[in-house]
Amino acid sequence: MTQDVPEDDDLTCTQVVMLITDYLDDALPTTERALLDEHLADCDGCSAVLEQFRTTVAVTGTLAQDDVDRLDDTTREELLGVFRRWSADRPPA
């Protein structure tokens, strides 16, 4: 048995690529996770894809820094107005 010849229960690269989010979420059954780890140890292509997904997640996370969606003063006042009207209409507890 050599390392390079796939065995019957080995995962293919297409299977690995489809399972990367499950892998990152730790949502795979133990056996499948072990098979995937085994595949990654031998496959530079799939390891590169895993790393690229990790980077993608990290870069997507930086979108939270964009301030286009920050609360502006006008909107804050409008929403506080909504609250005051709601509060005034509320029957006393």
């Binding site: 690269c13 496959c43 799939c46 590169a48």
Partner: peptide
Amino acid sequence: PGHWTTPPTPW
């Protein structure tokens, strides 16, 4: 079958 023809390379 199902393995890379041209494997991706790291960025």
